[in-house]
Computed example of a mutant assay.
Amino acid sequence: MKVTDKLPSGLNIQANRVAVAGISSGGFMTTQLQLAYPETFPLAAVLAGGPYDCLKVAGAMAGCLSPSALTDQQLTSAVNRAVQNAKDHSLGDLNLLNHGSIYVLYGTADQVVGTKIAGAVTTFYKKLQATLPTQLAGLQISEDGTHRFGHTFPTYLPPLPDDDCIKSVSPYLGHCGFDGAKNILEHLYPDIKTGDQPDGAAGAITKLRSANSLPPSAAYAGKFVYVYTPKACMNGQPCGLVLALHGCNQNETAIGLKFVRDVGFNRWADDYRVIVVYPQTRTVDQNYGGCWDWWGYTGTQFDTRAAPQMAWLNRLVNRVANLSGH
């Protein structure tokens, strides 16, 4: 695969069909990104993640991992923090989520983040909507916590004898017989109906230099970003975009391109008419195998628009999609 500075020509990305979807630390990052940049990410899907400012209201990382649970008071505090941060312009204009959506997915066998923390994402958004009932009346909130899989990204592949779907082992792409990527895309783009099997039209993976989107050193960006462009999105056809965020120990350093190639979004990209952007973290001692920052290793402003990692991801999407007015 050649390194390039150019995407296929003629991309036509619709701003209202841009989404962020992430697993584990990428799931925590997803909630932060949607609140920090609702003008860029009206749509979001969180897999095995946690609510905004979980660590700040829980007081410690352990309070955001299994078997912990957040109290109603802690979740109310998280909502109040988000609302105040938006008023202070540390987050985006939350009114822009009125026509947006959030989908929450987690497995019943997750023993890392756990069902209580993962399910708290739904409660957070419902409390946020109740706090801003007029502004967020149109926000669509949905959840599915009924499928049996562990702390892994479930794929359509049939279960193996060692059951990596439940055990949650590297590369954290479980053979579950449950297509998590399709399930997420169904909720992000409910207007599109597909068959049981993907169209299968060929697409192309572009390897971009992260430096082109100007990540500061504190963003801990990996050297490359990978972009999958399906045939359906070439030649100017209107399409959406999914920013797909890996979890801890799922970046290129840890597992090569397995997440990029095998997580499942590329299989369905033609059917749902989306390009898929796969940014990578840079692994350092502070981020536990390349996690996205939801606790502050990039700085004290990690949960705001001033966060170097989030600012880079927002800039990356806007450059890839060539969105105007952002």
Rank of each mutant, 00 (worst) to 15 (best):
K87S: 15
L160M: 12
L94V: 00
V104I: 15
F265L: 07
V57E: 06
G27Y: 00
Y172A: 03
T30A: 03
A15Q: 04
K2L: 14
L323N: 06
V83C: 13
L188E: 02
Y278E: 01
T283K: 04
G26E: 00
A254D: 09
L173A: 07
I205F: 09
A109M: 08
S213M: 09
G10D: 04
D285W: 10
R81N: 12
C291P: 03
L35K: 08
D285Q: 09
Q286K: 07
L323I: 04
T4S: 09
D285P: 02
R81Y: 11
A137P: 07
D293L: 01
N212Q: 14
F178D: 04
V18G: 04
S142D: 06
T131E: 14
K258H: 10
N16K: 11
F28A: 04
Y220G: 04
G10R: 03
T76I: 15
S101I: 11
T71W: 15
A130V: 02
L139C: 13
H326V: 08
R261P: 01
K87W: 13
Q286W: 01
A45E: 05
K116H: 12
L70M: 07
K193F: 12
N266P: 10
T146H: 15
Q135I: 09
A109G: 10
L35D: 07
S77E: 15
P133H: 11
Q250T: 05
I255F: 12
P238W: 00
R261N: 14
Y278T: 14
G180D: 11
A21Q: 00
V3A: 09
F259G: 08
L313I: 00
Q14K: 06
N235R: 13
L185K: 06
T146L: 14
A204P: 10
T108N: 13
L7I: 06
C239H: 13
H151S: 12
G222R: 02
V57L: 07
K127P: 12
V57K: 00
L136W: 08
G236C: 15
V225A: 01
V57N: 05
V274I: 15
T146F: 12
A307R: 03
D162E: 09
